[in-house]
């Protein structure tokens, strides 16, 4: 860390309750993911027992995947938990390579240094739903690796990052120079999470009306595409309520959540069918509305300038 003496401009009053967001949104969700991943890692190599534990871990991840700030990025874990979207089938190739390498590669230590595309939920989905969890050693190494990542993320929050957020503006805190930077970070999580839902979780399979891409749906082999969407909408609604008030956005998200839960097509195969496509596309539209409402109901009040340089790209 660079040596820094301190001088702070007076911070303006905070808009959201940062402690509440941490205590009632972030920490419960990182704990849920760590616990679900831990249970998956504790499950013996029986495919019928592994599948429900996998579903719990995957949906718990969807419920915190917008929290890329802090430990997820510091530890570089996001992509190794779920390498998706994966338009080049890097997961399939990486997994075939791992299987071909034999049992010396099927240990948690070896997995931790393997290609990220061959780790995490995407690789486990292939093993559980296409290979009957075989080879077992590889399956167990992958569940252990996932659980270790989830535990590291939880520990990173509880041992350091939550405090860094709570002490924004403290003399040695270069990460957060003022409380409003913490709010801005949560706002960025909310908006990038929504954009990921719109553009990837929904947008990848929907693509365009004339060129739907059902095979691009996330975790479709496990029938989790729609449940992942519902889990993330639920999480973003929770965060919106805590950063709000944002009545219009909350209404759009509530409506989107209801519709996502009502979808009777968990792998989103229906995107290729004009009739079945409409309710899926409707969720995407509602989320687009929520995105704009969040900007006007929360963003403008915060005076957000997030991504000024990140989005410039030059």
């Amino acid at each position: 860390m660079i040596r820094i003496l301190v001088f702070m401009l007076a911070a303006s009053p905070a808009f959201a309750d940062v402690d509440a967001v941490i205590d009632r949104h972030v920490l419960p969700r990182v704990e849920t993911f760590a616990a679900a991943s831990g249970r998956l890692a504790d499950t013996p190599c029986e495919v019928d027992a592994l599948k429900p534990a996998f579903v719990d871990a995957a949906t718990a991840w969807a419920g915190m995947s917008h929290l890329t700030l802090g430990p997820v990025e510091t530890l570089g874990r996001g992509r190794s938990i779920l390498f998706w979207p994966d338009t080049r089938d890097a997961t399939g190739r990486g997994l075939r390579l791992l299987i071909g390498q034999g049992e010396t590669a099927w240990t948690p230590d070896a997995i931790a240094t393997a290609s990220v595309a061959a780790r995490g939920l995407g690789a486990l989905e292939r093993l559980l739903y296409e290979r009957d969890a075989q080879p077992c050693d590889l399956t167990l190494a992958l569940t252990a690796d996932l659980a270790a990542s989830a535990a590291a993320i939880r520990d990173g929050w509880t041992s350091e990052f939550a405090d860094l957020m709570r002490t924004a503006g403290a003399p040695d805190n270069t990460r957060f120079l003022a409380p409003e930077e913490v709010e801005a970070a949560f706002y960025t999580s909310l908006v990038t999470g929504l954009e990921f839902l719109i553009e990837q979780r929904l947008g990848a399979p929907l693509n365009t009306y004339d060129d739907p891409r059902p095979l691009r749906a996330e975790l479709r082999r496990a029938d989790l595409s729609a449940p992942m969407i519902a889990a993330q909408i639920e999480a973003l609604l929770e965060l919106t309520r805590q950063l709000g008030p944002a009545p219009d956005a909350e209404k759009s998200l509530t409506d989107a959540l209801m519709r996502a839960r009502a979808i009777d097509d968990p792998s989103l195969a229906g995107v290729a069918d004009p009739m079945a496509r409409a309710p899926i596309a409707a969720i995407q539209s509602l989320l687009g509305a929520a995105r704009r409402q969040i900007e006007s109901e929360i963003g403008t009040k915060m005076g957000i300038t997030a991504g000024f340089n990140a989005l410039d790209g030059d």
């Binding site: 820094i4 003496l5 911070a11 120079l177 930077e181 000024f308």
Partner: peptide, 14 residues
């Protein structure tokens, strides 16, 4: 940075 922060050895400004 884009948040208005200026981090230097003589101080932090926002």
């Amino acid at each position: 940075d884009g948040l208005g922060g200026m981090l230097t050895p003589v101080g932090l400004r926002r």
